[in-house]
Amino acid sequence: MSAILEVTNVSKRFAMGGILSRNYVNAVVDAGFTIEEDQPEVLTIVGESGSGKTTLARMILGLESISEGDIKVAGRSVSGRVNRAQRLSFMRHVQPVFQNPFEAFNPLKEVDRYLQASARVLLGATSRAQVEAAMDDALQKVGLSLAEVKGRFAHELSGGQLQRVAIARALIPNPAILVADEPVSMVDASLRMTIVNLLRDLRDQLGVTVIYITHDLATAYYISDRIIIMQEGYAVEMGPARVVLDAPEHPYAKLLKDSVLPVENAGKSRVQPADRKTAQAAAKLSGTGELVLRDDGRSVRLPRDGDGSVAV
């Protein structure tokens, strides 16, 4: 088994301010995970805004340069893409789906033209018949058809349909990895499950690995195999999704789980403000702590004691 995606000790620092008063912000610190080639899965990255989850995804997509560490896709480093041929070869392996489908599509362009361009450039289809076959094939995978979409503009489709078109476009080059950055947060609650179920089917039926970025733990529990919980740039807890979410260990993971609104006592329960103290205290110690592997397969970031050993 070879790894399709290797993320090793990746960090990202953003510089803020001018030359004299320069501050650095650590967006992602020392992140690492591996995705195997013939083992499709849904890997979820969860965290609040500012936790670095989007920065990590953008680095995997090659949209952001890497400060330290390396990301390898199919054995080749993403930062080493220098010419068009290498970039296209990379894009055939990894494809993005963005948050807001209404902003991702140009309102003055028919949506099928995006699919056309992908088929021509990434798949190398030349004749009209080949292009249309590739488009229809990809649209069938997401439960649409070319006849429904052809010649339509973004405003003529509902949010759920548009997001499915975006996923179909990403599927045209038959990528191994789909990076979906909050694909459901702009979609209506009633249509949300169509997208989430679709991501699940992509893994089960087409063998596509989905890197699913979200702040919603309920859908994360529903579809993911592995989960990485990020807080202020650090991965604080990672491992099998059910194990982690059934009984989170890190204070921040607990805080996130407690923030999911329960529906069991509908109409009777009252929300209480979240208690962030323990999670914030843990965040201060993240820099000195390290990830410790537990017996059940999860890793938790634990702080160091005074003598430099990690409290297990």
Partner: peptide
């Protein structure tokens, strides 16, 4: 969707 439940949810 709820934590603790992975049965397939119907979509409209």
């Amino acid at each position: 969707p709820q934590i603790g439940d992975t049965t397939r949810k119907p979509a409209l």
